Structures are given as C-alpha cells and as structure tokens.
Computed example of a mutant assay.
Amino acid sequence: MIPADVIRNIRRIQIKSSHIVDDLLVGRWHSAFKGRGMEFEEVRPYQVGDDVRSIDWNVTARAGEPFIKLFREEREMSVVLLVDISRSQDFGSVHQTKRQLVTELAATLAFSAIKNNDKVGLTMFSDMIEQSLPPRQGSRHVLRIIRELLYTDPVGTRTDITAALEHLGRTSRRRRVVFLISDFQDQGYEQALKVMRRKHDIIPVLVRDKRESELPAMGLVALRSPETGQIVEVDTTSRQCRARFHAMMIDKQKRTDQMLSRLRLEPIRLETGGDMIEPLTRYFDRRQAKA
C-alpha cells in the first residue's frame, strides 16, 4: 500500500506537469522532435497546387489521370531520461532542491512524450546505476517514473556520468532522444559523451542553484560536500574568500560549457526557484527552427 502523502505528492506533480504540457509544450514537442522518417500511406487524385514531385507515375499511367503519393510521419519515438540523483541533488537554497526541480522537469518531459505517442524510459544514476525503467507508453508508466524520482534513496553518493552513458550504450541499441539531467559535478566524461552523441540525440540539462557559486557573508562556516563528505571551514566574512570561491565555481561552469560547445551540444539551463518553462519552450522553438 502506497502511503497517502506519497500519492498526494505524485498527484500534485502530475496535475502541474499535465497543465504545462497541454498549455505550452505538446505542439512544440511534436515540431521539435521529428519521427524516424516518412511512411507511404496512400495515393489520391492530383489537385491543383500539389507538388508535382509527389506524382505516382505508375498509378497515373494505369488510371489515365494524375495521382500523387501521400506519406505520414513515423511518429513513434523513444525518449530516455538519464537523471543524476547523487547526493548533490539534495541541495537547494530556495523553496526547492535540485532533485525536486529535476522531478518536475522529468514529469513534464515524460507527459510531453506520451501525449505524442512516444515511449519514455528512466535511468537514475549516482556513481552507479540506481534504477532503470525501459521506455514504455502510458500515463501509469509516467506515474511510476515520478514515484521513483521522488522516493528512490540512492545507494551511491557521487556522480559518475561516464558510467551512466556506458549503461545507455549497453541498453539502447536503437537511436533515442536522451535528456541527460545533472548538475554535472563530475569530470572525465567527455569521451563517453562524444561516443554517445554519435548514436543518440543527447540533450544536456544543467541544473544549478545560485548558492553553489555565491557564498553569503555568514561568518565562519563549515561546508560539507554532499558527495565526498569532506568538511572545509570557510570564513565567509572575507570578501577575498568569497571572491575566490565564486571564481572557482564560475571556472568549473565555464569548463563544462566549453566541453559541451566542443561537442556541439546545446544545453538547457535550469536554476532552482526559477522558471522551468521558459528555458524549455525557448529550446524547443530553437530546435524547431533548425529542423
């Protein structure tokens, strides 16, 4: 029996995500993510304005009048949500943690997929694969995804993007649309990402909290890394100390951005407490314009 508070939380996210999808994203999703190709459907008589390149000359010759071929898009597509649930995702300096933001994002993407008759799967990772659900259709499957994202307690603590990408390579032989959702607090994964982007449509989603790069002046503070457990005492009253911390974090973000740019991967950037929808719609509109 699932506890009542769990059901309420899942239902809340379902309602919020469904409204977002219906109001803003469902049309954009279809336009941004094309199907695998075009499949022949039928022929019909030629009408003024039809593209003459679509004329079926064999049928035209038999019928004695022009007919054209009609095609339909092979729409069904598989989407994989590759989601970082390492301990750093539990951080949040506003009304939500990174993991809460990630759950709402994943739910929104999953409902967008099934509204367009696409399949959606989930792989959650830390420094190991925590849980993996193969791509399927249907709202019941999406509710399972939401539940796992909300309540899976990770065994691992750190982030290993390389391991997650290698798991993707082993389990997804056919081409997928892959949303790689993480704060990217890892290194050494560029080669694995380079390999996977040749096989799959990889979309990095960078999730951050503003306090990860800015220290408030609060006196002597003991900072503990959620992933390594290391504790460092920092004098936050020192402007020089705060400036060094800010510069170090900005440099890390810059190196991640440069790496994604080298691989020609355009990220979606989200921040806790901020608007999730505007970055998504902006990305889908840009992608549609490039199609």
Rank of each mutant, 00 (worst) to 15 (best):
K115A: 13
D127F: 01
N116V: 08
R147G: 02
K98L: 10
S182P: 01
T108G: 12
V120C: 11
D183L: 13
S112N: 09
E166A: 01
G138S: 08
G188P: 04
A113S: 02
G121K: 02
T159E: 00
H141C: 05
L165R: 06
L180I: 10
T103S: 11
N117L: 15
D186I: 05
L143E: 14
L133N: 07
K115I: 01
K115H: 08
Q131A: 05
L193V: 01
F184T: 15
F184D: 11
G121N: 03
H167I: 05
T108K: 02
G188T: 07
T123F: 02
R170Y: 02
Q100E: 15
F125G: 13
V120L: 06
R144P: 02
L168R: 02
R176E: 10
S172W: 00
I181S: 11
N116K: 14
H167G: 08
K98S: 09
L150D: 13
G188N: 12
V142I: 12
L133K: 05
I146Q: 08
K98R: 08
D160K: 11
M128A: 15
I114L: 05
A164E: 09
A113M: 03
V102F: 06
K98Q: 07
P135R: 06
H141D: 02
R140G: 03
A110L: 06
K98P: 03
